[in-house]
């Protein structure tokens, strides 16, 4: 920036000497202290002063732990011993031959893929439904997000209660329709526990997709639909030719956000099954928890975490590329 010009709201100008105390008013000139303060809140430094708390926060609470995690993933750090030795890539080598790591990774992928796919499909369906112009539809739009706002711990209680044998909702309903043989504790069964966790993810987040997609649908010009109707396109064609191209980008963003959320989520699994029964629902976050809080193997836990991050980063970068390409075409 040249001296004598100021950048205001992105435009350079020389006609507005705003930071000159001469035009700052009488108050600023009254005392030296005041002038210092005035320079602080008006001068160029202020622009960056405002963002300082956030930068500090992120550096201390996210940046530092991130760098530290990467660092200790190359060591044998443990809460049981004070000394820390560099072990190079040993933790990562161990990762490759750790059966439980691969099992957790597979479960994480299964959970993320299934939950996100179901959320996207059901969310899209719900969005179409909420976009219908029938009396009272606003009430449904208003309450749809309720599953998303309640605490995850409460959601786990709701579903644990529903899955309880004998008097839980699922089992009572099964009995009512004559399928009493199927009654069980749905979280305690190796075949159904993962589906319960998927169900909780879908229940919580599908409405979020629906409202995001609904917002995107409502931004589509109505004239497009009228023109299509004149041309004789039926509802199905109208959806794929007009609606879908308009909401594709929003859908993509929702999917990426929820892949990250689901893959990293610790609370749903930890609070409902703790990774059991017999590790049937062990996912990477619960495996990291076990390694760090039960075996105190910080180095190894960090290596799992770094691997997780690399996997997520790869998935995200690929999907962002794909979305950009789709948008350009």
């Amino acid at each position: 920036m040249k001296s004598g010009t100021w950048r205001i709201s992105g435009r350079e100008t020389s006609s507005l000497p705003l930071f000159n105390t001469e035009v700052m008013g009488v108050a600023a000139r009254r005392t030296r202290g005041r002038r210092f303060w005035s320079n602080l809140v008006n001068g160029p430094a202020a622009r960056y002063l405002f963002i300082l708390p956030t930068i500090l926060f992120i550096l201390i609470f996210l940046g530092y732990p991130l760098v530290q995690s990467i660092y200790i993933s190359f060591t044998d750090a443990s809460l049981l011993r004070p000394d820390v030795n560099h072990v190079g890539l040993k933790n990562y080598a161990q990762l490759l031959s750790d059966r439980l790591f691969w099992l957790s990774l597979r479960h994480s992928f299964q959970l993320t893929f299934t939950a996100v796919a179901l959320q996207a499909i059901l969310g899209l369906g719900l969005a179409v439904l909420l976009n219908q112009k029938v009396p009272g539809i606003q009430i449904f739009r208003n309450i749809a997000l309720v599953t998303w706002v309640i605490p995850i711990a409460a959601t786990v209680v709701l579903f644990s209660f529903a899955a309880t044998p004998e008097y839980g909702l699922f089992n009572v309903l099964l009995k009512q329709i004559g399928l009493g043989d199927l009654q069980r504790y749905w979280f305690g069964n190796r075949d159904t526990a993962m589906w319960m966790i998927i169900l909780m993810h879908v229940w919580r987040n599908a409405p979020f997709y629906a409202l995001a997609l609904l917002a995107a649908m409502q931004a589509i010009p109505q004239t497009l639909y009228e023109a299509a109707q004149v041309d004789g396109a039926n509802a199905w064609t109208r959806f794929w030719v007009i609606t879908f191209p308009y909401i594709r980008y929003t859908l993509g963003v929702m999917i990426v956000l929820h892949v990250i959320f689901t893959f990293n989520n610790f609370e749903f699994v930890f609070l409902s099954t703790g990774g059991g029964p017999v590790r049937a629902t062990e996912v990477l976050p619960t495996y990291i928890f076990e390694q760090s809080w039960q075996y105190y193997r910080l180095g190894y836990a960090a290596a799992i975490g770094v691997a997780m991050m690399l996997i997520l980063l790869t998935i995200t970068l690929i999907s962002v590329r794909l979305m950009e390409r789709a948008r350009r075409s």
Partner: peptide
């Protein structure tokens, strides 16, 4: 920041 597995932040 969203991609960082928060479970790793527990110990720090």
């Amino acid at each position: 920041s969203q991609m960082f597995p928060y479970v790793l932040l527990m110990i720090p």
